[in-house]
Design a protein around this nucleic acid. Structure first.
Length: 414
RNA sequence: GUGGGCGUAGCUCAGGUGGUUAGAGCACUAGAUUGUGGAUCUAGAGGCCGCGGGUUCAAGUCCCGUCGCCCACCCCA
């Protein structure tokens, strides 16, 4: 069976599986639209710097997961690993800073060069909303609330836990970072190799370590909460207060740190234990520094991304496809007549299947196989009478219907 | 990048300690049934047993390598 294979970590989405994806996307799109988030589409590749600068030179995504290549003009191009940086770039290059707040919904493929496993692919799909130009905690609350509402609409909210944390503002983050580095340096020899490596480059990530020894050391580490300045504490308090007011349950998790460098203040993740090791199903946070690090005017932002594959797995079997009506001509004359008839009925909004070959029995079998709701039999007798025999494939009952009344009659099978 | 498991028909899988024409179920095609589907029966088609090398009189089976898939670490959506 060697030969043609899909590229590792990519996946064909056949119609049945794709219905599950569509349900996620359509639900999210509708919920987001009600909150005023309009859908936009972005290029799936950008200049490499767009991601390199914004995601942070030390993040895993940038250091080892980007699909980067040189195009024919010698430009360094990267397939987008996430959507937020692209929105920020569009905001700046498209002059949208004059029209804030910007509220957008995005969906499409993302690319990360990782080792595939359950719920993790190299080409995967996300839904994503971004709110830019709002510095108030009300923005964080709305964005999280929309996420929760989408999960609710998908029927999976009660299978997730909202974990939330604050990274504070730049001042708090700096103060905490200093305290953390001081503490960890005292235990440096006991840290795992990887964590020792992170001590200089990205110490906050050590809090996230799953290494046994590291975890024990982290237990005694200074708490984030103790180093927040008053402003950051108030901000976080307001966010939590808003969630309380909306009845959105959450768990504070001081170890929740975002992998991408541009986050500040609120960080959150809706997680599940039902998908194996890849538990994050919808995650995001606030990124007030992003637009300015890209060279644009200081513009606050909040947003999240949700994994469509993971959400689709969680929602389970997709809804069955709508049941068509099978058009079954018998004989040459009927075949000639069936095509325009099917065309007209389709034009009127009915789902009509017309097979390409076969006798009556074959076509009936096919009708059954595709789950047709009814069969429209068209033979010599019917043609002569200007009618068709319509058979209800569930009950087995059938009756003759004049062609002029056929369209009306068939609507009962929708 | 690191570990573990697995690669046999379109799909799900059998094929003790090597032994000659490689099997089943589902799906597919045809017929039983020339204007009536689902059920049943009959027949048929479908395999470089992932790939390459090695051991052997003999390899789907044992050994080495390689590629791929899955799961986990890591990271995240």
């Amino acid at each position: 069976m060697a030969g043609l294979q899909p590229v590792r970590g990519t996946h064909d989405l056949l119609p049945e599986e794709y219905r599950g994806h569509r349900r996620v996307v359509e639900t999210a799109r509708a919920v987001a639209a009600r909150a005023g988030y309009g859908e936009m589409s972005l290029p799936i590749f950008e200049f490499t710097e767009v991601f390199q600068r914004t995601l942070g030179e030390t993040s895993d995504v940038v250091t080892k997961e980007m699909y980067t290549f040189e195009d024919r003009g010698g430009e360094r191009i990267t397939l987008r690993p996430e959507a937020t940086a692209g929105v920020a770039r569009a905001l700046i290059s498209g002059g949208l800073t004059q029209d804030l707040p910007l509220k957008v919904f995005i969906t499409g493929p993302m690319f990360r060069y990782e080792r595939p496993q359950k719920g993790r692919l190299r080409q995967f799909h996300q839904i994503d909303i971004e709110l830019m130009g709002v510095a108030e905690p009300l923005g964080d609350i709305e964005v999280i609330a929309v996420g929760a509402q989408i999960l609710e609409a998908l029927g999976v909210l009660d299978r997730t836990t909202l974990e939330i944390n604050t990274l504070g503002d730049a001042e708090s983050r700096g103060a905490y970072r200093d305290a953390l580095v001081e503490y960890l340096s005292d235990h440096k020899s006991a840290l795992s190799e990887e964590s020792r490596d992170r001590l200089d480059r990205n110490p906050l990530r050590i809090l996230d370590s799953k290494n046994e020894g590291d975890r024990r050391i982290v237990e005694g580490a200074p708490q984030y909460g103790d180093h927040l300045n008053a402003e950051s504490r108030d901000f976080f308090g307001a966010v939590l207060g808003g969630l309380d007011a909306l009845g959105i349950a959450y768990v504070q998790n001081q170890r929740l740190v975002r992998g991408l460098d541009y986050y500040c203040h609120t960080a959150f993740e809706f997680t599940t234990t039902d998908l194996g090791a890849q538990g994050a199903v919808l995650a995001g946070g606030r990124y007030d520094g992003l637009v300015s690090t890209m060279g644009g005017p200081a513009t606050p932002g909040v947003g999240w991304a949700g994994g469509i594959e993971r959400l689709a797995m969680l929602t389970g079997a997709p809804e069955p496809a709508p049941r068509p009506i099978a058009m079954i001509p018998i004989g040459e004359a009927a075949i000639a007549a069936a095509l325009p008839l099917a065309h007209r009925l389709r034009g009127a909004g009915l789902a009509v299947d017309l097979g390409f070959r076969g006798n009556l029995q074959r076509r009936m079998k096919r009708a059954n196989k595709i789950g047709a709701r009814a069969a429209v039999l068209l033979g010599e007798d019917e043609l002569a009478a200007g009618a068709a025999t319509v058979r209800d494939l569930d009950s087995g009952e059938q009756e003759q219907v004049a062609l002029s009344a056929l369209q009306d009659y068939l609507t009962r099978f929708r």
